[in-house]
Amino acid sequence: MDKRQAETAEKQMVEGAAEAKFVTRGVHVFYGEKEAIKGVDLTIYNNEVTALIGPSGCGKSTYLRCLNRMNDTVESARVTGSILLDGTDIYDKKVDVVQLRARVGMVFQKPNPFPKSIYENVAYGPKIHGLASKKADVDAIVETSLKKAGLWNEVSDRLDTQGTALSGGQQQRLCIARAIAVSPEVILMDEPCSALDPIATARVEELIDELRENYAIVIVTHSMQQAARVSQKTAFFHLGDIVEHGQTEQIFTNPREERTRDYITGRFG
């Protein structure tokens, strides 16, 4: 995609869209010598679901992990370029990674509830960040978070049971509840349904659509159908670069690029 095209695409996206949450320009990620992401420009908007699709190893997860600086935990990783959250570069020295991650929550591929009670799982974030100090406040947060995650009705009578004792789909919704308990502005989801059965997947997808009202959501997915179902914007990654991005409808019905067409029609990937 040449520069001019990118600019028009960008303009199209800006038109009629809500406020931009993340603006990333020229993002490169290196693992030691290996360049995993080669200059990604992408804007992520509030109250929208942005899907990142592409074949395995194309760098979409790596890119996602830049947005809350989870790559910091990888010893050899190095990130260059600018990633602006509400106009502030999150890789700036002044930005505190702990607070950043409170603002940018994340849900992982495999449900990873802590081996604690359901209540403690959800209360963990608010407690460490000091969002609530009184028991009643924490209780309230736990309840609303679980309600938002659509789990409250299933677990309200057994908040003391271990989070790991829930079913896979419930665990993933618990992880979502855990993420929204710290009232983030953005939620990153790294293939959140890949370990779930179809029914649980449907529940989570429904939930994502509901959550869009309050958050900016970025979701990495392998499933084109899922991207088409839940997202408003889609970006197609290939070999560490964005091949094409734009309105989901447009990407899936009328892709500009040959490679995008080949991928969504299943010729490779």
Binding site: Q99, R103, H129, G130, A132, A140, I141, T144, S183
Partner: peptide
């Protein structure tokens, strides 16, 4: 319940900064 905006306000407050320093 803290929603996103009050949470954002909280994170910019001095109390939050103090807590982060403590942490």
């Amino acid at each position: 319940m803290t929603d996103a905006s009050t949470a954002k306000a909280y994170f910019q407050s001095e109390a939050a900064a103090k807590l982060v320093r403590k942490r």
